[in-house]
Write a protein that binds this DNA or RNA. Structure first.
Length: 752
DNA sequence: GTTCTAGAAC
DNA sequence: GTTCTAGAAC
């Protein structure tokens, strides 16, 4: 047994056993497909490390030939007995493969995972080129093996039993990890947690990334379908993930001759490559948000095409600047479409950027699968009852989406007035989502000129044009609201997430539209902000939709009658009251309370409160300065909770140590360390620009726990707290910008 | 917002 | 057995 073991011994005799310090042995489980560089990783660390290491390599453990998992286990146990740390150098791609090795952990032995999560194409090319690999995985077969293995890939999670996980999505991350482990002496331990994960769970990415696969260009309009051909053979060719893959008709009359590529590469490798590539920047190529919309009211509702096309172009022009990188596409079924050609020529006349707005001939329910155009949002020319059927686009969309869209629609609105729009997240089980990648349907009801249909305007085009304009405004506003929310999602994605797959999947699809307030109304988008303003004005402090519990009134009564609570108050002005938070969540945690009656929370804030917000911020800054005089090692952040628990708008001024016994649970942590916390500077800027601050969903409060500095994930509050006590990583760049963090003048950016 | 506690997770 | 979370009550 012993003599069969292939264990690379390095430096094992160089050091005497450490009597002092933690001196824990390590089991480092390498995770990665062939060609990811596991052996090289181990060799480099072992060559440089002062810690005694053994490398247990399944490929060579049996007298240079491959052995079994059991053999690796017994060798690892033997090495640990010998006070060595061990590398488990095998693919370990799924949880089950790793489980036995995780069990090697004990009070004396920490178990780590190091994931070499490099792009599949890189591993494949390394494997293919490899000539002297110990596992004899050479030549053409390599690619097939790598692909097959990656399909089973399951990223390790902390709850499998690791004290630390390092994920290396790029070669530079691998180098960093090599350095980290090389420097590890026998006494050293590394901080626990999950490091380096940049994307959300890969399993979700597969679904999303499929939309990035190259498809044929949409040809003559109805679109050619994707090549179904799938050859498992090699050589492997890099599939091109294209953003311009299927261009809609552009106004310049450019023809759509797509270059031909090896379809095999697309089908056989694309999934797995896309899967691993999902962590590359390149993978974000075709994630441009696109709204595909039919012409409203010009079909069954018989609206005049000339007038409608003017309005479409006018509204597109108006909204295009608000859309940043997003695109709008007007879709109709046939080339003969009069409305399409009218809009096309009018848009060209007005020099509307064809990158931002174009027309497309095809079926709006299968733009991706048949037309090769990825549109994450589609509009429906709905009827006022929001019911399926009736023919046309409405029937087609409800039918393509399956019954779940109708259910999702009914959850949010029962009817829709002409000119209004309703944003509906597409349920995850809908073919529209699964097959087409459509995340939202926006129902719009336009003006009706057809006497056979309800609400006929009897040729009153003054009213008709007004409603049609409103309809497009509502539609585009709805799209803008989706874009704003998806920005948050993207942030979350980049930060990574260890939440369960199912939960994440639900979040991605549904979280955007979830809200506690004004069910039914909330999803209806009126033109401009008028609805919201109306709501806020009419709301007053009495009929607020959310009732505040008696325990939630403390700040309110204090703001209204500060003289009754004198002892708690640090400062009172005509506009604000400053007090210590009675349950501080950090060394210093004070509140700046607005004194305006009726201004209960961030949601109530609008343009008229701009000056008050600035005052609150200024008072907060003044106090920050004072607190920094007492302790200039503190760093402060000033902001609001998106959805506060206590009534009366209050600004938190909180030091970023979060060192407090009152910080006890996930909600506490996430309320200050996710986008749920809205920096005062951002709120002020948004109110200046848009009249309202953006408010994030309470769902953020149940996100996994991540360090606010290094973004590593931690399984529970105590572990997070022990991590943040020591984490000296710099703050994320976004926090260092725009004065979101406030620190003493002696501090520099490098210190933070 | 907190406290309390059942029961899940370790 | 102990630790930790999450939901209900306040």
């Amino acid at each position: 047994m012993e003599n069969e073991m292939e264990i690379d011994d390095s430096h094992s005799k160089h050091r005497k056993e450490e009597k002092e310090g933690n001196g824990k042995a390590l089991v480092v489980i390498m995770v990665g497909p062939p060609g990811s560089g596991k052996s090289t990783f181990c060799d480099l660390v072992m060559g440089a490390s002062s810690r005694p290491w053994a490398r247990i390599c399944q490929d060579t453990i049996n007298n240079g030939k491959s052995g079994t998992r059991a053999k690796c286990l017994s060798s690892a146990i033997a090495a640990l007995k010998d006070k060595k740390s061990v590398f488990i150098d095998r693919c370990n791609l799924d949880k089950e493969q790793r489980a036995d090795f995780v069990k090697l952990g004990s009070p004396e032995v920490d178990v780590h995972a190091v994931v070499l999560d490099l792009p599949a194409k890189l591993c494949i090319s390394r494997s293919v080129k490899r000539t002297g690999h110990e596992g004899n995985l050479q030549g053409g077969k390599a690619a097939a093996v790598v692909n097959r293995m990656l399909q089973k890939k399951e990223l390790p999670k902390l709850n499998e039993g690791y004290s630390r996980i390092t994920i290396c999505p790029s070669e530079s991350d691998v180098e960093d990890a090599i350095t980290t482990y090389s420097r590890l002496s026998s006494q050293d331990t590394l901080p626990s947690g999950c490091f380096g994960q940049k994307s959300s769970d890969a399993k979700i990415q597969v679904g999303i990334m499929k939309f990035l696969k190259k498809v044929d260009p949409p040809g003559s309009g109805s679109g050619s379908s994707m090549t179904p051909n799938s050859s498992p053979s090699l050589p492997v060719k890099e599939p091109k993930v294209r953003s311009e893959g299927s261009k809609p008709e552009s106004f310049g009359g450019v023809s759509n001759e797509g270059e031909k590529e090896d379809p095999m590469a697309v089908e056989s490798v694309a999934d797995t490559v896309a899967l691993t590539n999902s962590k590359d920047d390149s993978a974000s190529l075709d994630t441009t948000d696109t709204l595909a919309f039919p012409s409203i009211s010009t079909a069954d509702f018989q609206f005049d095409h000339e007038k409608a096309s003017d309005i479409i172009v006018e509204k597109v022009e108006e909204y295009i600047s608000k859309l940043r990188n997003a695109r709008l596409v007007l879709v109709d079924l046939t080339h003969k479409s009069k409305i399409l050609s009218l809009v096309k020529s009018k848009a060209a006349q007005r020099n509307i950027n064809p990158e931002k707005f174009s027309t497309f001939v095809g079926d709006i329910t299968c733009l991706y699968s048949k037309g090769g155009m990825r549109c994450n949002v589609i509009a429906n020319a709905a009827n006022w009852r929001l019911k399926p059927g009736g023919g046309g686009v409405n029937a087609a969309i409800f039918s393509a989406a399956g019954p779940s869209l109708e259910v999702a629609t009914k959850e949010r609105a029962n009817t829709l007035a002409p000119g209004k729009a309703a944003v509906i997240p597409v349920p995850a089980d809908s073919p529209l989502f699964i097959r087409e990648g459509v995340t939202h349907v926006i129902h719009v009801v336009g003006p009706n000129m057809n006497p056979q249909r309800p609400n006929c305007l009897k040729n009153n085009y003054d009213e008709g044009c007004k409603i049609l304009r409103e309809a497009y405004s509502s539609l585009f506003e709805g799209f803008v609201s989706i874009l704003k929310r998806s920005e948050v999602q993207n942030h979350r994605g980049k930060r990574g997430n260890n939440a369960s797959d199912q939960k994440m999947k639900r979040e991605i699809v549904h979280v955007e539209e979830r809200s506690k307030k004004n069910k039914g109304l909330k999803y209806e988008v009126g033109s401009g902000n008028t609805d919201l303003e109306q709501q806020n004005k009419s709301k007053s402090n009495v009929n607020s939709s959310k009732a505040w519990g008696s325990w939630a009134q403390a700040l309110y009564s204090l703001a209204m009658n500060p003289e009754k609570h004198k002892s708690d108050v640090l400062e009172t002005t005509i506009d604000v009251i400053v007090l210590n938070d009675i349950y501080p969540k950090a060394k210093r945690h004070i509140l700046v309370l607005a004194r305006l009656n009726g201004l209960d929370r961030l949601e109530d804030v609008c343009q008229e409160h701009l000056q008050l917000l600035k005052t609150m911020h200024q008072v907060g800054m003044n106090w920050t300065e004072r607190l920094l005089l007492e302790d200039d090692s503190l760093i402060f952040r000033l902001g609001f909770h998106s959805v506060p628990s206590m009534r009366q708008l209050h600004l938190h001024v909180i030091s970023q140590d979060f060192n407090s016994p009152h910080l006890k649970n996930k909600k506490h942590w996430n309320s200050f360390n996710t986008e749920f916390f809205r920096d005062a500077v951002d709120v002020i800027e948004e109110v200046e620009k848009f009249g309202k601050p953006s408010i994030q969903d309470e769902g953020l409060l149940s996100k996994e726990l991540r360090c606010h500095r290094c973004k590593s994930a931690h399984p529970n509050i105590p572990r997070l707290k022990s991590h943040i006590n020591n984490c000296k990583a710099p703050f994320p760049a976004t926090l260092l910008q725009n004065g979101r963090l406030v620190q003493g003048t002696t501090k520099t950016d490098a210190d933070s």
